[in-house]
């Protein structure tokens, strides 16, 4: 154990992820924000607009992965504080980064699992996927990126009321959807819209999906992946920094 402290911590992060999935996958807020919200958004903004099926697919998969990967994460820490399991958890020999990584992994796996649904729908309804491998990698990195973002959203304020976090994170999530390239392809945007869109990680994922289904994208595939990874690192670093400060305040 002491020879590989990093690997050992990673193993413990997976134990925490397993616990999170067992406990939270069927909880109310997770179902509402992970499954119902993306369906609602999709129906509200895409149906009846007579869009080509590729664009519908981009919208559906973008909504789903964005909301489902972020549904478990923000609730975990406040929920643990409220149900008085946090103190015991923090006293275990697990670093804060590994503890949070466990939460990210759970969110990420949940996001991956739920995203199988729109991919299946797309395949069944005849969306042709030109670059399946890139799409898989894109889903993988995007789910991890959004899951990290979810953990950042729970870092502040140090509340023990899960619904407070759900509300504040919704306030951040929705604008990020609206400014992203999910409703309008980036190449059809005004310059100011495009600049705004570049601040939303969702933009880069939808750009990747466009590349995989239509063969065209605004950014290069390399830029899209780099942006997703860059956002992930940023979210994780900031989340760990803030959580380290706020965790003791939740007890």
């Amino acid at each position: 154990m002491l020879e590989y402290p990093f690997l050992e911590q990673l193993k413990r992060a997976f134990a925490i992820a397993k616990k999170n999935l067992r406990i939270y996958y069927k909880s109310g807020p997770v179902l509402i924000f992970g499954l119902i919200t993306p369906c609602f958004f999709f129906l509200a903004f895409f149906i009846g607009r007579n869009l080509p099926i590729q664009q519908l697919f981009t919208g559906l998969i973008g909504m789903t992965i964005f909301f489902s990967s972020m549904s478990i994460g923000p609730a975990i820490v406040p929920f643990e504080a409220r149900s008085r399991t946090l103190e015991r958890l923090v006293s275990t020999p697990v670093s804060v980064w590994a503890l949070l990584l466990g939460d990210v992994i759970a969110s990420f796996l949940y996001g991956l699992l739920v995203t199988i649904i729109p991919v299946t729908i797309g395949l069944v309804s005849g969306v042709s996927i030109i670059h399946p491998l890139i799409l898989c990698l894109g889903i993988f990195f995007a789910a991890f990126c959004f899951a990290s973002f979810g953990i950042l959203l729970s870092a502040y304020p140090p509340t023990d009321v899960p619904s407070t976090v759900m509300m504040t994170s919704t306030l951040v999530k929705f604008p990020l959807v609206f400014i992203s390239g999910i409703f309008i392809p980036i190449w059809e945007m005004h310059d100011w819209q495009r600049i705004l869109a570049s601040f939303s990680p969702l933009t880069y994922f939808t750009d990747l999906v466009n590349y995989c289904t239509q063969g065209t994208s605004y950014y290069s595939v390399f830029v899209d992946f780099a942006a997703l990874i860059g956002f992930t690192l940023l979210f994780l670093t900031v989340a760990i920094k803030i959580h380290e400060k706020t965790l003791p305040k939740r007890l």
């Binding site: 616990k19 067992r22 406990i23 149900s83 008085r84 399991t85 015991r88 006293s91």
Partner: peptide, 15 residues
């Protein structure tokens, strides 16, 4: 090398 029974702690009730 330590363990603790905290004052107000709970086990995970959903496990």
């Amino acid at each position: 090398i330590i363990s603790v029974v905290p004052e107000m702690a709970n086990a995970y009730i959903n496990l």
